[in-house]
């Protein structure tokens, strides 16, 4: 895999983190298929990436949560002539109270964040295994590391996804391909715009993007973004239940 001309598929390409990451790759001359739901947004992103240096930026309008992952990815693979990176960046955050009380809302979140994502990951894994190269990058969350009362439905979807990607990484390791789950902490994006106070733990999408771009080159299967979250989550995972239960997080 050469640095220049990487063939990249981004699912959820209009997300703030995905776009910031694509800008890094564009400067290296990458070729993109940008998957998202709104044509005008993908077009604006694609124009910018081409000006930055992308050899190709092809918008593809698709609802990742309901699409036929296998067939769609096979078509993309054909168009690109190979797959060096797949970045899975779509997902829902949801309203925690609603997710707990409305089963349909929880099911929709699970379908989007876990079931559909798993189908894309498995389809990508099969391709990477066959190629014996390439990397699958999946955006998870620190919320998936331990169930907490503040957002455990979302956390479960991301936690499940992290286990799946770990397994894919393990499966791909012997053939030289990789899979990485990138777990951002608090990120200042439209997804979290409702939070007014943002302190030292908050990172901007560009910071997360740099971590993801590095993960495309090396490392894994689990990468925290920024890296200090590894230690915070290590502590949180190992808190004894009596202590943990007293924390309102």
């Amino acid at each position: 895999m050469t640095r220049a001309g990487k063939r990249i598929v981004i699912l959820g390409a209009a997300s703030a983190i995905a776009e910031a990451t694509a800008r890094i790759w564009a400067r290296e001359g990458a070729r993109f298929i940008l998957v998202g739901r709104e044509k005008s947004r993908l077009d604006a992103i694609a124009d910018h990436l081409r000006l930055l240096g992308a050899a190709q930026a092809h918008p593809l309008v698709l609802d990742c949560a309901t699409a036929d992952a296998g067939a769609e990815l096979a078509a993309m693979l054909k168009a690109l002539g190979g797959l060096d990176v797949m970045l899975l960046a779509y997902g829902l955050l949801g309203e925690p109270k609603r997710l707990e009380t409305e089963p349909a809302a929880a099911a929709e979140l699970m379908q989007t964040n876990f079931c559909s994502a798993a189908a894309w990951c498995l389809a990508a894994s099969a391709i990477l295994e066959r190629q014996r190269s390439g990397v699958l990058l999946v955006i998870g969350s620190v919320a998936g590391d331990r169930g907490r009362r503040s957002n455990f439905v979302y956390g479960a979807s991301k936690g499940g996804l992290a286990r799946l990607v770990e397994g894919i990484a393990h499966k791909l390791a012997p053939v030289g391909a990789r899979a990485v789950v990138v777990k951002p902490g608090f990120v200042d994006t439209p997804m979290t715009a409702g939070v007014a106070k943002k302190g030292l733990l908050w990172a901007d999408p560009d910071t997360i993007a740099r971590v993801i771009a590095r993960a495309a080159e090396r490392g894994g299967p689990t990468v925290y973004a920024p890296a200090f979250w590894r230690w915070i989550m290590l502590a949180i995972r190992h808190l004894p239940a009596p202590v943990f239960n007293k924390l309102d997080i």
């Binding site: 209009a14 703030a16 005008s40 439209p190 715009a193």
Partner: peptide, 28 residues
């Protein structure tokens, strides 16, 4: 779409009223 935010100041930093801020990313 608008969230109340503190610390949204101009360069001179002489006033410090909170502002309602929306952060769009797309023209639509």
């Amino acid at each position: 779409d608008f969230a109340k935010r503190d610390g949204v100041r101009s360069w001179g930093r002489t006033s410090n009223h909170s502002q309602h801020v929306a952060r769009p990313r797309f023209r639509d």
